[in-house]
Amino acid sequence: MPYIVRRVIGLVIVLLAMTFIVFCLESLVPTDPARAMAGVSAPISTVEMVRQQLGLDQPLPTRYGRFLLRLIQGDLGMSVRTRQPVLNDIMRYLPASLELCAFALLGGALLALCLAMLQGWFPNAASLRFAITAAGSAPIFLTGLLSAYLFWFVLGWLPGSGRLTGRSFAGPTGFNVLDGLLAGRADIVVDAIAHLVLPGLTLALPIAVAIGRSLAGALHDVMRQPYIRTARGKGLAEGRVVLCHGLRNAASAPLAMAGLQVGLLFGNLLIVEQTFAWPGIGLYMVQAFASSDLPAILGASLVLGAIYLAIGIVIEIAQSLADPRITLRA
């Protein structure tokens, strides 16, 4: 069976497991949702009527079945806070977060390469390693705060909040940089990028440190292998040796680390979006937590979980491309 088919089936199974967990979590809420809807002082009969209306008196498998049915139709419930369907809310805010995450991942990867190269050139520099560890240990609310304080408040070089300065602009994709390019408006593109820098780099830093360390370690091991000596023995330039022979064989572990970082990205996203008032799904989640908006919390968790799983598959494919010995197997 071809790889993609097997992985998709695996994905569906895990998604089902996730939905089941979310469903159970919904049922664990201590307050009785029927009573909450009916009102604190409503008589029992009204509460029971509401319970029947909501279908809460059905047995567990039926409730789960109906829950799944609703999910498939795209109904993630209604947000208590915004009074909008959760799915609509998510679709509104997701592009902003995706743009920020893409920027962060790209920046993180590039920075990781630079850090790994630096460590390769100065293998015994204890201060370099210390600096990198210090940078990677900093909690993201601290780095976000400090960078906002320094580059926005003190120096005024970069904007400290929002996605665009004052103007309203909405493009087709929701990615401001892309939309700006499509509309041919250079000022929008520059503005969007300027707003992306601070939150993006704040997010990118822990990613860069983690992947950079993994890459440096893997390169260190790979460059000691006999085939590197063979490559040098052919008289190849050092740059080519590192790139074609070294990096490709060292790619597997850093790619796995990248996958891990994507999972941790979500938590950091919440903080960064709150600090920089970035109108994305992270900010939505923070507000949902603050107002105990359970449908929003659970709905967004499902969507983000699915995205995370999809990225996991992409990482696996990338790993097998780097190392053809790894055959893709479920």
Binding site: V14, A17, M18, I21, V22, L25, L28, V29, G263, L264, F266, G267, F289, S292, L294, I297, L298, S301, L304, G305, Y308, L309, G312
Partner: peptide, 14 residues
């Protein structure tokens, strides 16, 4: 396979 922070946050929220 489940995203770690996501589930932890959700469990605690609930």
């Amino acid at each position: 396979v489940l995203p770690p922070m996501l589930i932890a946050l959700t469990v605690v929220a609930v």
